[in-house]
């Protein structure tokens, strides 16, 4: 593996990781019917960490991060977010979800609302923020993802890259403590991937705690302070990026890296 394989022009970002635990997952097990999709997952995320999760398709990456805001229920083990254990208590789950932003592969913007309304919906109806204040916040984040001029358009009138940046702004408007990204660039055309990654790098630099499922290895190098490799429902390996790329321990990681880095060029 050479630097030619991974375009990496930027220096890795420095970021402060505190010792405050934000997410604590212990012995997490999940089944879809008979299918054991997550097998004994243990993961602790500290404030300010940027974690990139990779692994072959079907290895359970999405399911794992969806367990963090309880879009999926786990059957065994424990997931704690900000000290709140995830249970069937709906009120508490809504409370957790307010603090955990999520960005999806297919954006999932609300097509019947304008970009601005997409961004103000949750602050107004969940945080009970006055409309004027919510709009001000929304414009600030739209500015930050570099599309303030699209505020009054509908999502259907935007390109994929723009839609994904709106989706990021929409999550940020709730001022979450953690952001989850599930393959945020895999549905995008190559020329749009960059604009979304730039926004995410910017977010990482601001100190946001991020869990990103992604196969953008250049991004991982630049942003992650830890890379997690999953296979077959397990966390196979986790390490800081330099170690992960230069000195992968398990054979499965090596195989995966060789495949993904080749297909990238």
């Amino acid at each position: 593996m050479t630097d030619q394989d991974v375009p990496n022009t930027q220096e890795p970002i420095a970021g402060t990781v505190s010792d405050e635990v934000v997410i604590d997952i212990t012995s997490l097990n999940k089944w879809f019917g008979d299918f054991h999709v997550l097998k004994d997952i243990n993961l602790t995320v500290y404030r300010g960490e940027r974690i990139v999760i990779c692994g072959p398709s079907g290895s359970g990456k999405s399911t794992m991060i969806r367990c963090i805001n309880r879009l999926e229920k786990h059957q065994r083990g424990k997931v704690e977010v900000d000290g709140i254990e995830l249970t069937d208590n709906i009120k508490k789950m809504d409370q957790v979800r307010r603090e955990v932003g999520m960005v999806f592969q297919h954006f999932n913007l609300f097509p019947h609302l304008t970009v601005l309304e997409n961004c103000t919906l949750a602050p107004i109806w969940v945080r009970r923020m006055p409309r004027a204040e919510a709009e001000e916040t929304a414009m600030r984040y739209l500015d930050r993802v570099k599309i303030p001029e699209q505020a009054s358009k509908y999502p259907g009138q935007l390109s994929g890259g723009q839609q994904q940046r709106v989706a990021i702004a929409r999550s940020l408007c709730m001022e979450p403590r953690v952001m989850l990204f599930d393959e945020p660039t895999s549905a995008l055309d190559p020329e749009m991937i960059k604009e979304v990654l730039e926004v995410m790098v910017d977010l990482a630099e601001s100190g946001m705690t991020m869990l990103v499922v992604s196969h953008e290895m250049g991004f991982a190098r630049q942003v992650a302070n830890r890379i997690i490799f999953m296979d077959d429902g397990q966390i196979v390996e986790q390490a800081p990026p330099t170690e992960f790329f230069q000195n992968p321990k398990s054979d499965r990681t090596k195989l995966f890296l060789s495949q993904i880095l080749h297909s990238e060029t």
Binding site: R98, V100, M102, N108, L121, A167, S171
Partner: peptide
């Protein structure tokens, strides 16, 4: 299902999800 998931992930409770996101569409 992405519409439900997006609403949930923003912390919108069931009735608000229905009223503001799902039913209008």
């Amino acid at each position: 299902s992405g519409q439900y998931e997006a609403a949930k992930s923003l912390g919108l409770p069931y009735w608000k999800t229905m009223r503001l996101v799902i039913l209008p569409q």
